[in-house]
Design a protein around this nucleic acid. Structure first.
Lengths: 241, 241
DNA sequence: ATGGATTTGTCCGTATGTATA
DNA sequence: CTATACATACGGACAAATCCA
């Protein structure tokens, strides 16, 4: 929980303070129900004015991470990050089972398109080959935790989009096509700021950080069956290999 | 390369524009030597004033990512991201071999300390047990790519710090202790903003994004031998599982 | 039940940074 | 280069709610 004000670098002090406090909460240093230090103490710790600290706390309150109570103090409301295990047999819903009471996957939209060079390379297709593209959003206990775009070979899964909207689970849809098992071939992980659409859909404060995963799944014969670009809010999820 | 200005959210427009352009460069959309669109075109694309775009370009030039040439245009200078492969047999130097001409690992400092609860849990020790802690920095082709903190059981590696300063390679130091093979037991990946010390050591612009990896390595008998907390600038590195 | 200390909430004003024109 | 509008950050003062001796 340390921040210096001397260099702004285009990121406002109140935002850096909010990020630092949020990190202590989602990282587990501050547990749910804990009382935060007083505004005066935080101001001293961050070498900032109390008003600046108050703005940071207001942002965190807006996110539902903390809640202030007049005369009593400011308290931690939300829980720590969810962990998404990534390995050879990676299953989104299985991996998060037990970490959240509810896990809802929405299918936002879908279309048939021609594979770009990147998508074709990932799926082992010729550039321009027909692919199904679906946009999805996953929500755990009411908090959005993943925004994903998935491409699949049209030849293998012509009506994937219709089925995923019904079944929610990718694993279940693959099973409906007769694919009883599949494996993760590769996962590429990077990080960046959320754009405006992601900020809105994931319910994030502008400027939030996303973990970005590019994953290719293959069937038991090592044929690529899906290429997924998933974006996880770093403040709500961590990836465990 | 899209940014909207309607909501600032504590991150200045010039910084968001700089981040967006840098993302296109390190993500491979713009290759080394490519010419960027003119300042006027960029200003139009980002719905910003040309002065604001110029400030973003000035920051990128300072980082060495682009270079402006009077009357000719602005050109991409730096290369794309390095990929660090993570798996059961993860070796930092081997993984990056071929991606950079030079890879230097510095040992910044070291000390003997008592394990915190988190460190003890990771290494399977009793809280308070003696551990060796070393701080390191790795630089590829002159650009810092990793800032790491490593804890090891003092009982097994009493003078690890002295040896790593000599040998640079962790694998080589383990070999010097008679450990001919070791494996990655777990890797936990998250992301956050760089703090002031990291910003300085890694030569980043304030507010830069870090990929954070917490890794535990075990020997052939599955005994934990090291717990490493590594921070990679997201603009220079990606992790591949 | 009361007074005083603590803590958050609201108001005023001032200086500097950001972005546009 | 100037001028303008708005966001950021600081400083002080005081009100309102809570807690405890």
């Amino acid at each position: 929980m340390t921040v210096s004000k001397d260099v702004s670098g285009g990121v406002a002090l109140w935002r850096r303070i909010a990020d630092a406090i949020r990190l202590d909460i989602v990282g587990g240093k501050l547990a749910s129900g804990d009382r935060l230090p007083t505004e005066a103490l935080l101001a001293e710790r961050f070498s900032a004015n109390r008003h600046t600290v108050r703005r940071a706390l207001a942002v965190l309150a807006e996110e539902g991470v903390v809640g202030a109570e007049q005369g009593r103090g400011t308290f931690v409301r939300s829980a720590r990050r969810l962990s998404y295990p990534i390995g050879r047999r990676t299953r989104f819903r299985e991996g998060l089972r037990g970490q959240a009471a509810s896990l809802v996957s929405q299918s936002l939209s879908h279309r048939i398109e021609n594979a770009t060079a990147a998508v074709a390379a990932a799926l082992g297709l010729k550039p321009g080959a027909k692919v199904v593209r679906t946009e999805g959003l996953s929500i755990a206990d009411g908090r959005p935790i993943s925004r994903s775009t998935t491409w699949l070979p049209y030849r293998l899964f012509p009506d994937f989009a219709e089925r995923i909207a019904q079944l929610q689970s990718t694993t279940a849809v693959f099973a409906s096509y007769g694919i009883d098992d599949y494996a993760r071939a590769s996962t590429r992980i990077s990080a960046r700021h959320a754009d405006v659409e992601e900020t809105k859909l994931l319910g994030l404060a502008p400027g939030a950080i996303l973990l970005v995963s590019e994953a290719v799944d293959v069937d038991s014969a090592a044929i690529p069956i899906s290429y997924a670009l998933s974006r996880f809010p770093a403040e709500r999820m961590e990836l465990v290999v």
